[in-house]
Amino acid sequence: MAQAGTLDIRNLSKQYRVQGEPLPVLDAISLSIEPGEFVSIVGSSGCGKSTLLRLIIGLEGDYKGEILLDGQHVVGTSLDRGIVFQEHRLFPWLTVEQNIAVGVLNAPGSDAAKKRAVQEHIALVGLKGFETAYPHQLSGGMSQRVAIARALVNRPEVLLLDEPFGALDALTRGHLQQELERIWRTEGITAILVTHDVEEAVVLGDRVIVMQPRPGRIKRIVDVPLARSRDRGAAAFMAIKDDVLSEFGGVPPLEAINPSIVLQRDISDWHFSR
């Protein structure tokens, strides 16, 4: 079982420069996440919740404040932190098992142990029998399962999820939320889920962090002291969901189709991790 990590975010601020003007995206975020905790972050478009995840995973730098995993400063990407993006981002030229194996490519351990880990994670996400399928042969939900397996196969301490089910239909979405809860419990991992779906945040989170935009700040932290698996129809569940929704004026937070900031990056801006 993976060792769960403690994540400490202290006074974190981040700004972009857009046409020479500073544009603050995150302002004084402080958050402490316990080992094995499941934290949901909800907010509408432009609240910087995806940027927060990109900073924690190490895909972006140049910030003020501190991000600490088990007391260590986060520098660049690391196999200690796994991520699932909104799009599955599988490599279309690799089969399911080859895609999952990308997760352990640079991990320590023997080839046999890696092979075993890949097989275990195929079973964990319920994709036995699809080992040799290519991504174009899979449905959206199945592709996202592969992406989850790829993120978990090297046993990271923290799993980051950036709207992982945002592009799926409601039925698949509800089902994968249950699956994610099961996987999180099996792996005993620390998880951070970014979403704009309040119900999803309350179903999965031990705590729900409500963020507000321009610049992105924490507005409120709501505890969800309900036993798992949670009944979405229960009065206590509805009360917490309504409470979180009230932070958005009773209207579900909106997600813009296009991100408000389009950064000019391409392959030439690649920098190597080693």
Binding site: S78, F91, G103, L105, N106, F272
Partner: peptide, 22 residues
């Protein structure tokens, strides 16, 4: 860029980047 992010998350080396992604 989405795939380049994946390569960075899994810490691809220069040659892995060339032969396994590009």
């Amino acid at each position: 860029l989405e795939h380049l992010d994946v390569a960075r998350v899994y810490r691809f080396s220069r040659s892995q980047l060339l032969f396994r992604l590009i």
